[in-house]
Design a protein around this nucleic acid. Sequence first.
DNA 1: CCAAAAGTGTTCAGCTTACACCCATGA
DNA 2: TCATGGGTGTAAGCTGAACACTTTTGG
Lengths: 230, 230
Amino acid sequence: MEKKYYAGHSKIFVAVDCIIFGWDDSQLKLLILKRNFEPAKGKNSLIGGFVRGNESLDEAARRILFELTGLTDIYLEQINAYGEVDRDPGERTISVAYFALLKIQNLDAELIKQHGAHWVPISSLPKLIFDHNQMVQKAIHRLRRRAKSEPTGFELLPRKFTLPQLQGLYEEIYQTSFDNRNFRRKVLYMDILKRLNEKDKSTSKKGAFYYKFDRKKYYRLLQNGFQFDI
Amino acid sequence: MEKKYYAGHSKIFVAVDCIIFGWDDSQLKLLILKRNFEPAKGKNSLIGGFVRGNESLDEAARRILFELTGLTDIYLEQINAYGEVDRDPGERTISVAYFALLKIQNLDAELIKQHGAHWVPISSLPKLIFDHNQMVQKAIHRLRRRAKSEPTGFELLPRKFTLPQLQGLYEEIYQTSFDNRNFRRKVLYMDILKRLNEKDKSTSKKGAFYYKFDRKKYYRLLQNGFQFDI
DNA sequence: CCAAAAGTGTTCAGCTTACACCCATGA
DNA sequence: TCATGGGTGTAAGCTGAACACTTTTGG
C-alpha cells in the first residue's frame, strides 16, 4: 500500500473545462454543449470532465477533446484554475480551464452532434453555467495575445489558405478590421508563408493565391532571434 | 447530509505554492524555505500549503501569505496549475502557483526567520523541490509582462521612491540596463508620478527627488483609455 | 575642489498608419 | 462589359534607441 504522507488534508474534485475555438471561414466560434448530468442538466456548458487519479491535467484535457472529436493533435494551452468554493453547486470542484484551437473543416460534424455539442459565434455567446463565461473571456484574451506573438492563428486555418482568409481570421479574433495593404505587407515581410501556384476561386473571379505556413523556415528564423508579430 | 452528485469520481489533494518576490533596493529576491515535513524534508521549497475544503484557491494563497508575513494586502496573482501525476513524490497533488509582490521594508524579518524562510536573489536561484523551479520561471515571465503594462512594479517599492530606485528595480526585473534619459522621459511622460519636495540623500551628495505613485490620477487616466507602458 | 550620482535634449532609424487605384475574370 | 474581390506603393507621423555633458554638494 502507498505511503500516506498527507493524511489529514482535504481532497477535492478537480475538473477540466475546454474552451474550444473554431473558425468556419467567416466567424470565430466556440463549441459548447447542453450538460447531460445534474446539477444544471440541460444548461449550456463548456466541454469538461473530471481529472482521474492516474492522469495529469494536460492528459485529462487531451482525453476530453479526443472523446469529443476523435482528434489527437490539437493545440491546447492551460488558461487558469478556478477555485471558488461555491462555483459548482453540485459539490466543491476546482476546475482548470484549457483553450483549444480546432480546424472546423477537419471535424466530423456527426460526432459533434452525437455529443450534443454545437458551435456558437463568440460575438453572441449564450449564458453558460457556473463561471464558464468568465473562462471564455480569459481564453479570448489569451488567444489574442498568442495570435499576435506566435503563429497560433494558423491552427485554425486549413493547411492552405489565402491572405484574405488569414486577414478575416485576425479580424474576427480582434473584432476589428485591418487595412489590407498594411496587413499583407506585415505578414509577407516575415517571410514564413510560401505562396502556392494555385488559386482559390471560390470567393472571387480573379482568385486569391493559396499560401501555406512554412513551419521549418519559421523554426529556423526563431533560432536567429526572429519574433513573430502581427 | 449534502447531496452527492459526483460520486465515483476521484478527489485529489490540491495545494497552493507562492512565488514571493521582494526588492531590497538593489536586488530582486525570492522568498523560499527549507521544507519541514516529508517527503523532501529539509530541501529548498516555495512557500505552500494545502487548500482546505472551505476556502477558495485565492483564499488559500492569502492565508499562507498571512501566516508567513502577517500581512493582508499583498499583490497576488495566479500563475498556473501544475498537475503531473508524479510531480509530488509523496502523494498525488495538484498545485496552483501564485506570484506575490512584497515590499521587503514592510516585513518583519524576525517572523520570516521564525518560519525558516530566507531571501535568495533571482539571479542565482538554488535547486528547488519538485517542479518549483519551473513555477518560478513562469512567475518571472509573468512579472515582466505585468511590470511592463501595469504599474505592478510599484508594489515592490516603498511609498516614496526615487527615479534611480525605480530604474534599478526595472533593470533587475528585466536583467538588463536602461538608458536613464530614455527611462526617465518615458516614466515621467505618463504623468502618474508626483514629485515630492524632498530628497533622498542616502546615495548621493546631490540627492535624488522622491516621487510617489499617484494612484487616483492613474485610475482617472485609465478611464480615458490610457495604457501604462514602460 | 573634487568625486560621485542626479538630472537633462536632440537626432536618426524604423515602424505604424493612412490612404486609392488597377487587375483579373466569370457571369 | 461590368461587378466583384484580389492585389499593390508611398508619404507622414510617431516611437524607441543611441548618445554626453552639466549640476549639486558632502567630504
